[in-house]
Write a protein that binds this DNA or RNA. Sequence first.
DNA 1: TTCCGACAGTGGGGTCGCAAT
DNA 2: ATTGCGACCCCACTATCGGAA
Length: 508
Amino acid sequence: MLLIDVVRVSEAVTRTSARLGKVGHLAELLGRVGPDEAEIAIAYLSGELPQRQVGVGWRTLQEPPPPKLAATATLTDVDARLTRIKAVSGPGSQAVRKDLVTALFAALTSQEQSFLTRLLAGELRQGALDGVMIEAVAKSSGAPPADVRRALTLRGWLPAVGAAALAGGVEALRAFRLEVGRPVAPMLAGSAPDVATALQKVGAPAALEWKLDGVRVQAHRSGDDVRVFTRTLDDITAQVPELAEAVLGLPHLDLVLDGEVIALHDDGRPQPFQITGARVASKLDVAALRETTPLSVFFFDVLRLDGRDLLDLPYEQRHEILARAVPPALLTPRLVTDDAGKAQEFFTDVVRSGHEGLVVKALPSPYAAGRRGAGWIKVKPRHTLDLVVLAAEWGHGRREGKLSNLHLGARDPDTGGFVMLGKTFKGLTDQLLAWQTERFLELADGPTDGWTVVVRPELVVEIAFDGVQRSPRYPGGMALRFARVLRYRPDKRADEADTVETVRSLML
DNA sequence: TTCCGACAGTGGGGTCGCAAT
DNA sequence: ATTGCGACCCCACTATCGGAA
């Protein structure tokens, strides 16, 4: 199959707003792709690469060579070239990679170049990713969507699942099994503003578990072999030896556990996420790092034990099995209750102990991986500040032509100026985007690089955020974590905004 | 007919490893 | 030694579609 066939379908998908219409376009293409190219087509049309990543990003794709006029590239050819690009390494590799990318793009039409650029940059923007492709695979193969989804949970990679479905239908999908050593798509949590709302969503009684601000891990053990995977299914076994040792210390030779690793202080309080994140990301000198920054692990679920797959069991039963298989010190602190008061008290406790919040879990829910379903709901405390808009950046995609990303500042009473604490584009409705675009252009002040519009610091905006972290980037040495807009405060002047001192007092 | 769950899109701060400067 | 780049940890929120109620 030619790349242009895929590109044309992608363009049709982009033009179609209805999801069923998108599914129709995708399914039609899946109906005519050959078995040897099915995986590539499914990957490309769901925003993935068969290679997962190839070391080529947005920057490398600037200034493409002149396009060809005739589309001749096949999926197999493009895929083989990307495999070669991924394999390049060592001194001189950047130039070699750039040359290979240039040669690849020189063989493409401008339509194909545009598609591949967006695909490599991870910004397909056709309004269809995994969720829509699951439906398309189902439609084209004749298998129920639930079977496709189920196989994806177990296999963790839609192109492989889709290709199997197209070749072997529902039988092939039902042949997928949890395989120890190969990661399962992790179950994700929705969110709620408070514990009472979360309890209402999942039903009482419910389990409340501490939400630790670390890195999600899925640990697989087969005999003496342990593998550890992240939420995106990357293998981090080598970075977390403490975890492998903990799992090898358990009396079960065959198991799959779900949990969180986190760096703690000696008193058990959590280190800032930056510390845990840096520790887990470090591959060099892990032996020295584990002395200075040891990791602790806490499990909250079990997906397999001694030859038995447990995903379909109710959470309550899985947890009973977990609690028998794992010593209490390795279990995530937890409370089962139907009492809203006790639940609230548990939330207060976990926050006071320095942790992130709670995950509220429905007792009957199976391990429905990969969906932010209603089974698990996270609850975190929320801080707010009144900050001043210092500048705004032009948006992309559906925010094209709108000033979107806000630069936020706190008041500095010493200088009479403002100290930037980060940016946010979150929480804005279309109406608010339109209003602020107009307003900022009135307030525009100073030179613009065509990207950022600096404004007179007059507008006060109420910002919600999860915490204040150390920043090497911003002048105050601190930045807001997960900042989002709640509302503008027309009733407040800039000289009534919160101060850097107030922000600093929150950084602990 | 209205409601609500699932999905895609829009980007945020921080850190690491590697190659280039 | 520092910088640029790609990748990947953590993530919140809104708009939209279409099935459920």
